[in-house]
């Protein structure tokens, strides 16, 4: 469904709650992951998408709906989105969704997306746990709308008829024009995301998060065979950690002496 032209944009934003992998540590002795107490956080990349949505709302008005598929703890990511200024939050949660791969995740999100009016869908560039960067593109396909990734700038036309974007490239950027509705995967070059305010948090605490289960989505026309593990075509036979790197060399003491040793070593290895 697409909203009428003339009013502010309806923006749908998909966010994910992820383990804070930046906090994962290898045990110095056993080299196993220290998972204890590693909390879940809002996927850092999704903060840039949120920032994009909030800035669009500041300019054009409209409505920002945030959706997440995940366990009940994903409420925290949604609550933070509300604190930052999202208007509505929806959590798709059910045991049936568990262990979804990117395809099943995108499918499930698309079922919800089709029930609300939107001009634009925003996602993070990737999630820091899976790092596949697939959900955004797959969601666009399910919704049958164009998409762009690595988006660093969004200029929405006032008449809601199109959008001009910049895509970050390795050395430069692309400028694209897309029709609406479209899906944009926002890169961190978009700009520093804001911090939630005290009043924002307090308002968010009072807002209700809409919960939809597998049953609810089926009532909206979803095929439950595509949910979760059983709807996931991805098969992972084995996960193995990268091989350990050989230890580095540390030269301490007099800086001049250390630099000389470094240059010697680099030339010995044929780097300089």
């Amino acid at each position: 469904m697409v909203s009428e032209a003339g009013v502010g944009p309806n923006i749908l934003l998909a966010v994910k709650q992820v383990p804070d992998v930046s906090e994962l540590r290898l045990d110095p002795v056993t080299h196993s992951l220290l998972r204890e107490g590693v909390p879940s956080v809002l996927n850092p990349y999704d903060r840039y998408a949120l920032e994009a949505g909030l800035r669009l709302k500041e300019i054009h008005g409209g409505r920002l709906t945030v959706v997440s598929m995940g366990p009940p703890q994903a409420r925290k990511a949604l609550q933070e989105s509300l604190a930052l200024g999202a208007d509505e939050a929806v959590l798709l949660t059910d045991r049936a969704f568990a262990a979804a791969d990117t395809w099943a995740t995108a499918y499930t999100l698309s079922v919800f997306a089709k029930t609300i009016p939107f001009n634009m869908v925003l996602t993070g560039l990737k999630a820091i746990d899976g790092e596949t960067s697939q959900v955004g593109a797959e969601l666009a396909e399910f919704l049958d709308i164009p998409h762009a990734s690595y988006v660093r700038k969004i200029d929405l036309r006032g008449d809601m008829q199109g959008v001009t974007i910049e895509r970050q490239l390795e050395n430069g950027y692309d400028v694209w024009e897309l029709p609406l509705p479209c899906l944009l995967m926002v890169a961190k070059e978009f700009g520093q995301p804001r911090l939630a305010t005290l009043q924002g948090y307090i308002r968010a605490k009072r807002q209700k998060i809409r919960i939809l289960t597998a049953h609810d989505l089926e009532a909206l026309g979803a095929n439950s065979a595509y949910f979760g593990l059983k709807g996931s075509p991805t098969f992972i036979p084995k996960v193995s950690p990268p091989p350990a790197k050989p230890p580095g060399t540390i030269w301490s003491g007099d800086p001049k002496e250390s630099v000389r040793k470094l240059v010697d070593a680099l030339s010995r290895e044929g780097f300089v």
Partner: peptide
């Protein structure tokens, strides 16, 4: 020259969780 924090402390802090 600046003495970097002692090795002992580095090892201790390695187990801690920071969100710098």
């Amino acid at each position: 020259m600046v003495n970097p924090p002692s090795r002992k402390i580095d090892e201790r802090l390695y187990v801690n969780r920071y969100n710098v």
